[in-house]
Design a protein around this nucleic acid. Structure first.
Lengths: 223, 223
DNA sequence: AAAAAAATACTGCATTTGTGTTATTGCCCA
DNA sequence: TGGGCAATAACACAAATGCAGTATTTTTTT
């Protein structure tokens, strides 16, 4: 059974060229093409469930409703459809918005067609998100920036939960599912010490089991 | 001029196999291997600037100082060296930390060697960040979660985690910190039954302890 | 310098948990 | 109507965990 693919791009030339080149692959059949987000949504509405494309290549930089807006709308109606965003160098900084809109992958338009095909197959089979390396880099940068500016958790908070650095470290490993012996090895400690730390942590958190501690720790972002 | 590559892995077998297979490539020469983070830093200290590897493949899950810690330390001393993290399924959720520690890319260990070679070359030539698709997907998820702390539910769901209603119920109580005996009482079951359910849940989630199960359950919002 | 806090290490004991294995019952579905 | 699955239940053993102590060494604070 071939993978049903849709393509949305406001330039007929692209639509054509992608369509043709993708159909070369024995695993893929292009069943839907649209020149705009509106047209895409329109066509989807007319399809029965079993004829939905499982993957849609979506151009980002379209006039009118752009690719991101289209995905945002489409994901609400067709959450099971995967969207692969296509972008040119110029607007690859839209990744972020696209991801939030529900895009599943992110490729540069001028990527080799064989790679795009690989990505489609992979996304279809495994639900994995393909990304061009340049895009991956950007994503990493974004991720760092999105999460670094926290830092501001001074003593204003809970007087109870003032774990020491060592305790936090050990709690973290505990939450990660390691057992005492392993934690001890990782930190070059005796397992006795780890158990003592754990006991102290339990006291501070007013709990008496690993599971409870994990609950508190994750809920209060102690780790 | 070949790309000088280092490899750090605490399993000699991996060290050997990677080393050999990478040296096949005409563009790559492995100039440094180490069995631990300590050994790696040690060897680096002895090298002159021009003999630094330009790319280091770093195993994440090493005993003692793990790959992430090693990168954190190494990046301070050798910021111009690129680090490609290698991970197995088990610990691919460490991406985030690795990125913050300064890793430049993230690959699954069992990726085809040709892909790893491609990544090395790409990273060397363009400074782009290579990522295995599975990893890329995780990164996207992280990025989303980092920025939309509430977030709905990804209905694209995992077919892997198909717990039954009863199993979910029991997992939930487990996550809430109840022990088996208590859960049994709450649900009017024998504690044997609860334990059997737990065992089944562990199998489905591919884990082997309460802590790990809790982690998976909360991360994937199974509960 | 003295006091307080944190990190380290150990012992022994009771309880909980993880694992392997087996078995019965009811239910759905092909 | 037989096969598969979910839910229930039980047994036994090994391993990990929780609890209650005590004690030494660093580090930090006052």
């Amino acid at each position: 059974m071939k993978i049903q693919v849709g393509i949305v791009d406001d330039q007929s030339q692209n639509l054509f060229s992608f369509s043709e080149r993708l159909n070369y692959s024995k695993d893929i059949i292009v069943t839907l093409t649209a020149h705009s987000g509106i047209e895409f949504l329109d066509q989807m509405k007319k399809l029965s469930f079993r004829n939905y494309p499982s993957i849609v290549l979506m151009d980002i930089g379209m006039a009118g409703m752009d690719g991101i807006e289209t995905v945002r709308n489409a994901k609400l109606l067709y959450p099971e459809v995967h969207f692969l965003m296509l972008t040119v160098f110029d607007d690859d900084d839209k990744i972020f918005e696209a991801i939030k809109a529900g895009a599943d992958g992110y490729l540069l338009k001028n990527e080799k067609i064989s790679l795009i095909i690989d990505c489609i197959i992979q996304l279809s089979e495994m639900g994995s998100a393909p990304m061009s390396p340049r895009i991956a880099r950007k994503t990493l940068d974004l991720l760092i920036r999105a999460t670094l500016p926290d830092s501001g958790n001074a003593s204003g908070g809970n007087p109870f939960y003032t774990l020491t650095a060592r305790e936090t470290e050990i709690l973290k490993l505990t939450v990660d599912g390691y057992e005492y012996k392993t934690i001890a090895e990782k930190l070059f400690l005796s397992s006795h010490t780890v158990r003592k730390h754990i006991a102290n942590i339990y006291n501070k958190l007013h709990v008496s089991s690993k599971a409870q501690a994990i609950k508190i720790a994750t809920k209060n972002r102690l780790i």
